[in-house]
């Protein structure tokens, strides 16, 4: 199973870009499945449903959304397997600039809004600096000079990444994203680790746990089906 994890601030255009990309993936004989994680409410499942692919949504509610995504990764892979998908695409709620949801063997895609200003890439943190691909949106709203400076600032934060300009509204550039997803040869394993640790606070991820498997987690934990429990003392 190929795993693609998409992160980015709210409103950056993650869902729009995914919809355009998935259309192209489907046309190229790839079998994608999508899991959308949101915090409190989502209607993105309806947007994805128009693509007739397997879609699963999860709401993190009281749990940290990035932790929720990681904690339920096994279940998401099972869901994709059961639906005979070959590529699992997980779109995170992506709120915190301190976490990065990417695991070692996923293709990590960061979506960033170029109207957020040239200082933003430096402040965005690990979900940009650990990404394999950085997708820049809304480039049509700024000048060519500002686009070029924005690109340079991304490379300062993440010199190894591939930068793609994509227009979420008309899909321009989505073909490049699809091409990179198809070309990725990484496969998800049972022993996934996060590329970057989460902040230190009060849950297991917060104290530095990077192992993904459920047995390593304590605190207030919420499952994909909404069942929530406290594990620990």
């Amino acid at each position: 199973m190929k795993l693609v994890i998409i992160a980015g601030t709210p409103g950056a255009g993650k869902t729009s870009i995914l919809i355009n990309t998935i259309k192209l993936l489907k046309g190229a004989n790839t079998k994608p499945a999508v899991v959308k994680v949101d915090c409190l409410a989502t209607d993105d499942d309806k947007r994805f449903a128009t693509l007739s692919i397997p879609v699963l949504t999860g709401l993190s509610r009281d749990m940290c959304p990035d932790h929720f995504s990681i904690y339920n990764l096994d279940e998401m892979v099972k869901f994709a397997d059961k639906n005979n998908a070959d590529t699992l695409i997980m779109e995170t709620a992506g709120l915190c600039h301190r976490c990065a949801p990417y695991t070692d063997n996923c293709l990590g895609i960061c979506v960033i809004d170029s109207t957020s200003g040239p200082n933003n890439p430096g402040k965005t943190g690990p979900f940009l600096s650990c990404a394999d691909i950085v997708v820049v949106t809304k480039g049509d709203m700024i000048s060519q000079a500002e686009r070029e400076i924005f690109r340079e600032k991304i490379l300062e934060a993440n010199p190894e990444c591939t930068i793609l300009d994509v227009n979420g509204l008309n899909g321009q550039g989505a073909a490049e994203v699809a091409k990179h997803i198809m070309a990725s040869d990484k496969k998800v394993t049972d022993e996934e680790r996060l590329r970057h640790n989460a902040p230190f606070a009060v849950c297991t991820l917060c104290v530095g746990e990077q192992r993904v498997s459920k047995k390593y987690h304590r605190g207030l934990l919420r499952n994909m089906n909404g069942f929530q429990e406290y594990i620990g003392e």
Partner: peptide, 22 residues
């Protein structure tokens, strides 16, 4: 382009220097 305003929050000189560098 048709844009009539900049969104980048910096001064004219720094902007031009950065762009020349790019």
């Amino acid at each position: 382009s048709q844009n009539m305003n900049f969104l980048a929050d910096m001064n004219v000189r720094d902007f031009l220097l950065l762009h020349a560098q790019c």
